[in-house]
Simulated scan of single mutants.
Amino acid sequence: MNMATPITDSGSVPDIATSRPLAIEARGLVKRFNSTLAVDGVDISIPEGAIYGILGPNGAGKTTTLRMLLGIIDPDEGSRRVLGADNPQDVARRIGYLPEERGLYPSMKCYEAIAFMGALRGVPLPEGRKRGKRLLEDHGLGHAVDKQIRQLSKGMAQTVQLLGTLVHDPALVVFDEPFSGLDAINQGKLEVLIRGLADKGTTVIFSTHVIAHAERLCEGIAIIAGGKVPFAGKVDEARDRIPAQVRLETRNSDGPWSAALPAETRRVGDFWNFPLPESGVEPLLKALIEGDAGIQSLSIERAGLHDAFVAIAGEAAARDMVMQDAGGEA
């Protein structure tokens, strides 16, 4: 039974502090498949024009969450609003969706495949054919305009389906594991395309189990593990869950100045490593200089998103992500 109810303005859940209108807001999304609880109380808010990543290992609930947001399936509990509509199907023609399971008719020519996908979103076929040819030219596939899908490499076929997702100029684009199966060159091209969409004001959401893509691209993320979202917010806020680390090299290995080092300090080779003190590094620098420690080098390194993911979701989820990225079994 569908128990979803509309979200009221007073009930929004902004996990990215912004004055921009929200493209998507969801609260308490729950989905069960028979006795399996696939998604358990997901809250997500995404402003217009943002690039937003949903991170987690396979089986964490990413695809189910995306399908609920898009209205492909209904939540058993909770609410969602997409592009201002309580029923996502009412704004389906303003949305582009690239599912993880790719599928094109192999006998179609490339530009016809793009036109066909546009027609499903209301673009007349003649206009879709024009747009398809232009998109193929713009993305380096002009030589493949008249080729059948079966004649393409896997990467080229994925690019054609990606262009078909964009042919109707959607306001919201949702990619489910878009980098999967692409080589490094095509992954880089896709990152450029995603940034270009956001520059035009398009909201882009993508799921991934590769943290590096989210770290490079995203304004905000939701970390999902076991159907729950232990974190949703800005990338910087996730990284700030772990204190920055100081790496210090001194000419002298000991002296009265060493008493100023934090209790958590570890000596690794020629370097002292410790978390950045809450008071900052300036008081420590003063003690080191006055104590003649002989500072050779000092650097402050913020935690990466991978380290933040481990701290938030746990080592098991992070290990699954790494194994999936390497093509192993989770």
Rank of each mutant, 00 (worst) to 15 (best):
N2M: 02
G78Q: 10
T64R: 05
P47R: 02
M117P: 02
I44Y: 10
A60V: 04
Y111T: 01
M68D: 06
P21V: 10
N87I: 10
I24M: 06
P88A: 11
D15L: 13
T36F: 13
S79A: 15
V30G: 00
I16E: 04
D43G: 00
A60K: 07
P14Q: 09
A92E: 01
G84I: 10
E112C: 02
M1W: 06
A17F: 08
T8I: 09
L104W: 01
V82T: 15
R81N: 12
F116C: 03
P99G: 05
T8K: 14
E25M: 12
A26Q: 07
Y111D: 04
Q89E: 11
A119P: 00
D74I: 03
P99T: 03
L55R: 01
P57V: 08
D43L: 11
D9P: 13
E48Y: 14
R80N: 07
T36L: 14
E48C: 09
L98P: 02
Y105P: 02
P6C: 12
N58R: 10
L66S: 01
M68Y: 04
F116A: 09
G11E: 15
P106N: 05
K109S: 02
R27A: 14
A4D: 11
G41W: 09
I7K: 08
G84Y: 12
G53A: 15
E100K: 00
P14K: 10
M3K: 13
G59S: 09
R94H: 15
G11W: 08
R32F: 09
P6K: 11
P21W: 04
N58I: 00
I114Q: 00
V82A: 06
V82I: 15
P21C: 11
A85G: 01
V30A: 07
L55H: 03
S79V: 08
G56Q: 00
I95F: 07
K109L: 05
L29R: 11
S107C: 04
G96I: 08
T8R: 14
G49H: 12
R94D: 12
L55K: 06
D40W: 14
Q89F: 03
G71N: 03
I46W: 12
G53V: 09
I72V: 15
L22A: 09
T18Y: 02
N58P: 07
V30M: 03
L22W: 04
A23M: 03
R32W: 13
R93S: 10
G28L: 01
N58F: 07
L55D: 06
A26C: 11
E112A: 10
L37T: 11
Y111K: 00
A50L: 05
P21Q: 10
A115D: 02
Y111H: 15
A26M: 10
T63D: 05
Y105I: 02
I24V: 15
A26I: 07
A50P: 07
V91W: 06
R94A: 10
V91L: 09
P75H: 11
N2C: 04
S79Q: 12
P106R: 08
G49Q: 05
